[in-house]
Design a protein around this nucleic acid. Structure first.
Length: 861
RNA sequence: GGGCGCGUAGCUCAGUGGGAGAGCGCUCGCUUCACACGCGAGAGGUCGCAGGUUCGAAACCCGCCGCGCCCACCA
């Protein structure tokens, strides 16, 4: 035991020891009922870890450490989510390359010595993926370093990546299973599309952003001018550039204003295209003129109307977000005046939507088809969460996984799952109930898991999408852009009657949704998988319920017909002091390593573990100071309790010792119950409150007896009792704090115990009974402890007010209280006298507690 | 528009039917033999507002106000 214990250096000392001793290695021989398996979020490695990660991963670690001490074989691997767009962007810029799926793999490829962002080198997908792997490997080392410094009790021998061969194999295998069972399908349909990344995106990846726009009232002509009264059809839109893509006008079925028009045709301004006027109950009579223009496609409502009313497609928007050329006069592009339509449209073709919007308003104004002035509005526009321009809806061929058909089953799965806190289930149900389409899993990107699919080419060299060639299971993982399907020669790639690869990769969530299978090595190590799946708990933050949690449940439901885990432990966010979410773009991010260096890992963990499950928590360095103080206190209290301690007695003979142990027993029960129900914050709080009381009152009350081990039998017995109480209670405190403060608890444990505290058994009621050594406790003794504390407090107050030191002698105190309570206090009188340096304790019967304190003369005066 | 959560001391937050609490911050004091990375003491609150249930409400119910998040068919 060190002379002056310190927290400095504990992180390096103990994390090295844990690694050396394999302290956190999973025991694969443990039977399933003894396994506790955790499906940890694999952090995205192309960013950097922020304090929010530290926050929620600490919660998980506390849970992991608790169950390990409960004797479970804890399966706690870490994964890195390196698959996806953010990595692609970094690799393109860092190496000056771009991925071209049509380029052949070059095994000797070296990135350009002088990378040029302007003229990137086109390389094959496997070469591109190799560069991604090289770059992410560096990030992953830095992340692991941070996690070790934070003290996560991860089994580092089981780390996986979402782009690794195993993840790709499992992901492709699952996809092929879905395809075989008809749960995955390919279709050409309107798809959410990001025009900058030029890829399809999923509903779950959208977010709303408030954007300024202009509401323009526009006059459509009416084809049949025999109508009385209504000569013009007026609509309002924020997207006038889509007028050439208009396929219908809609009114509400009960709207009298437009009834005369319904069933007739209107003519689009500028282009003179006939569009029917129809009704649909989703039309809002209160909005605009009550008449709405349907385009292919301006927003997701257009898709609903288009589908339900069987409208034609008239598409003007290209994948790059610019208006394409359209063949006026050809099928589907009719016009009253083809020459004019062509002339007007030339003003728009090739422009971005924003440019086209501005121009068409000018054209409409010149044609006198704008009614009044456009009104500025602010409206919510859907964006891809990583994108810079609004998403568009573009028709393309994509892969989907069925979700809508399984909505009710998924709701039922959500009810089987134990949610912590329970109200988080509502977010899951809201999301499932709000699903509007199946899950689009294909992305027109490169750094992802490829679809294990080829298509035969017909004699004309056109792919036959209706007859995909699937990879054999033994081939997985496969990259169809370099590997050839069975029965074909590599030279037939792209040739008539040959084959072609599916060009897409899977959405990153299509692989991340399989983390229980990847970590558990499904299909590769069936014994392991059976032993860890379904997992015990999925810890994650609430913002990814709709993505990660939802898709993981979906995949497990579709592949195994059961939940992927029994519990979901949902954590909140870290907010900055202004209660805004911390994010890089706001510049309010605190780097975790800096915090660990300044306050120490235990202190940072203390702050994190104080955040209640599911609750957003403000970043607060002050709380870290408190955590550091607690860790230092544990060092010093342990030193006091253990240094030169008299021999331990066979039982607790002193009332205060027994009463303290009785209280401790309740704290153990409370902390255990809390941790079992994933409320780590409550367990920490109860333990901490009691520990401070223990230090401030119990230790002070028994300090005299601890040192005063004179020769008299009763004194020896009293000292032996306090020795027993101190050793037993300290041992329990050290273990109660171990899930939260792993470093300092390991340090103090090592002073007097063999092995790691993190493999020691979690304290329980039996242990408390054992500590008592055959003695029993009663309410009177606990009352004695309470009263002794209260009287000590009064004595301290008197000394404080007299500006005397705490050890200043007290000639006499008079305690007023009821006879019953005074009798109880008598049990603690000897300890109280020593603790307060009190010479005489007198008592007076009274209705309630009061203490008169007569300090001895101050020798200094 | 719908759903969920939150509103308690200057700050961060415990407290789900019976004495309004903790830590930080603030003030004062103490070289104290585990700890000055400390110890002791003190000041500080109409528990968002209004009603109801109850012998009794910070807590339970209804309504309102405010904040946050999620969702929505935001033309």
């Amino acid at each position: 035991m060190p002379e002056r214990p310190t927290l400095d250096g504990l992180e390096h000392k103990w994390s090295a020891a844990w690694e050396r001793d394999g302290c956190y290695r999973f025991d694969p021989s443990a039977p399933r009922e003894r396994v506790f398996s955790i499906d940890t979020p694999p952090p995205t490695v192309s960013g950097s870890l922020h304090v929010g990660h530290v926050f929620s991963y600490t919660h998980t670690d506390a849970i992991a450490r608790f169950w390990r001490m409960r004797g479970r074989a804890v399966f706690y691997p870490m994964g890195w989510d390196d698959n996806g767009l953010p990595t692609e962007r970094r690799v393109q810029n860092h190496f000056g390359v771009r991925c071209d799926a049509s380029v052949a793999y070059d095994p000797h490829f070296k990135p350009p010595a002088e990378p040029s962002e302007r003229e990137p080198v086109g390389i094959s997908r496997p070469n591109f993926v190799e560069l991604c792997l090289a770059l992410t490997a560096t990030d992953e080392r830095a992340f692991e370093e941070l996690w070790r410094r934070l003290g996560l009790s991860v089994d580092w021998s089981r780390t996986y990546t979402t782009i690794g061969a195993r993840a790709q194999r499992i992901s492709q295998r699952s996809f092929l299973g879905l395809l075989e069972r008809g749960e995955a399908y390919q279709v050409e349909a309107p798809t959410l599309w990001d025009v900058d990344f030029q890829t399809a995106v999923a509903q779950a990846e959208l977010e709303d952003r408030e954007r300024p726009g202009a509401m323009t009232r526009i006059r459509f002509g009416v084809a049949d001018d025999t109508l009385d009264g209504v000569r013009d059809a007026l609509i309002e839109t924020t997207r006038p550039e889509l007028i050439p893509a208009c396929v219908a006008l809609l009114a509400h079925p009960d709207d009298e204003r437009w009834r005369a028009l319904v069933g007739r045709d209107a003519l689009t301004p500028l282009f003179g295209t006939r569009v029917p006027v129809l009704t649909h109950p989703l039309v809002d009579r209160e909005k605009g003129t009550g008449l709405v223009m349907v385009c292919t496609f301006g927003d997701v409502t257009d898709v609903v109307w288009w589908r339900e009313l069987g409208l034609p497609v008239r598409s003007v928007l290209g994948p790059d977000g610019r208006l394409t050329d359209v063949p006026w006069g050809a099928a589907g592009w009719d016009s009253q005046d083809v020459e004019r339509a062509r002339r007007e449209y030339e003003q728009l073709a090739g422009r971005t939507v924003n440019q086209a919007r501005k121009r068409i308003v000018e054209l409409l104004t010149d044609a006198n088809d704008v009614v009044g002035e456009p009104t500025p509005v602010t409206h919510a526009v859907k964006f891809y969460e990583k994108g810079d321009r609004p998403i568009e809806i573009i028709t393309s061929r994509q892969w989907f996984v069925r979700t809508v058909a399984h909505g009710d089953e998924l709701i039922e799965r959500g009810r089987e799952l134990s949610w912590h806190p329970p109200y988080m289930r509502a977010r899951f149900e809201d999301w499932v109930n709000g699903l509007t389409g199946d899950w689009c899993i294909s992305r027109q990107r490169f750094f992802g898991v490829p679809f294990p699919i080829w298509y035969p080419l017909d004699a004309a060299g056109a792919p036959r999408h209706d007859a995909p060639i699937v990879a054999r299971d033994e081939q997985l993982p496969v990259d169809p852009s370099t590997d050839a399907p069975d029965g074909y020669d590599a030279a037939q790639r792209g040739q008539p009657n040959g084959f072609v690869a599916d060009p897409d990769v899977m959405d990153t969530w299509a692989t991340s949704s399989l983390t229980p299978q990847i970590a558990g090595r499904a299909g590769d190590d069936d014994e392991l998988f059976a032993n860890v799946f379904p997992m015990d708990v999925r810890p994650q933050a609430h913002d990814i319920i709709r993505t990660w949690l939802f898709t993981t449940i979906l995949r497990s439901h579709l592949d195994y017909g059961e939940l992927p885990w029994r519990n979901a432990a949902i954590s909140g966010w870290v907010l900055d002091p202004d209660r805004k979410k911390m994010s890089k773009s706001k510049g309010n991010v605190v780097t975790p390593m800096h915090l660990l260096e300044e306050f120490g890992a235990d202190a940072v963990r203390y702050w994190a573990a104080s955040g209640r499950p599911g609750a957003d928590t403000a970043f607060d360095a002050q709380q870290m100071k408190v955590g550091r103080r607690l860790a230092v206190k544990l060092l010093n209290a342990s030193k006091f309790a253990l240094a030169d301690l008299p021999a331990e007695g066979p039982s607790l003979t002193s009332a205060l010792d027994r009463a303290m142990v009785a209280r401790l027993a309740r704290v153990v029960a409370d902390a255990t119950d809390s941790l079992e129900s994933y409320d780590y914050a409550r367990a920490l709080e109860r333990t901490e409150v009691f520990f401070w009381w223990y230090c401030d009152y119990y230790l002070e009350l028994v300090k005299g007896r601890r040192y005063d081990s004179g020769d008299a039998d009763d004194r020896r017995e009293g000292a032996a009792s306090v020795s027993r109480a101190l050793r037993r209670s300290l041992s329990i405190f050290q273990r109660l704090f171990a899930p939260f403060l792993p470093f300092v608890t390991e340090e103090v444990w090592s002073w007097w115990r063999d092995g790691s505290v993190h493999q020691a058994p979690w304290p329980d009621a039996d242990e408390v009974v054992d500590a008592l050594g055959g003695a029993s406790t009663d309410a009177r003794e606990e009352l004695a402890l309470e009263l002794a504390g209260a009287v000590l407090h009064e004595v301290r107050k008197a000394k404080s007010q007299a500006r005397r030191p705490m050890r200043a002698p007290v000639a006499r105190i008079v305690v007023h209280d009821t006879p019953e309570r005074l009798a109880a206090l008598e049990l603690a009188a000897d300890d109280l006298r020593l603790a307060g340096s009190i010479d005489v304790i007198d008592t007076v019967d009274a209705d309630e507690l009061a203490v008169d304190v007569e300090l001895a003369d101050d020798p200094a005066q």
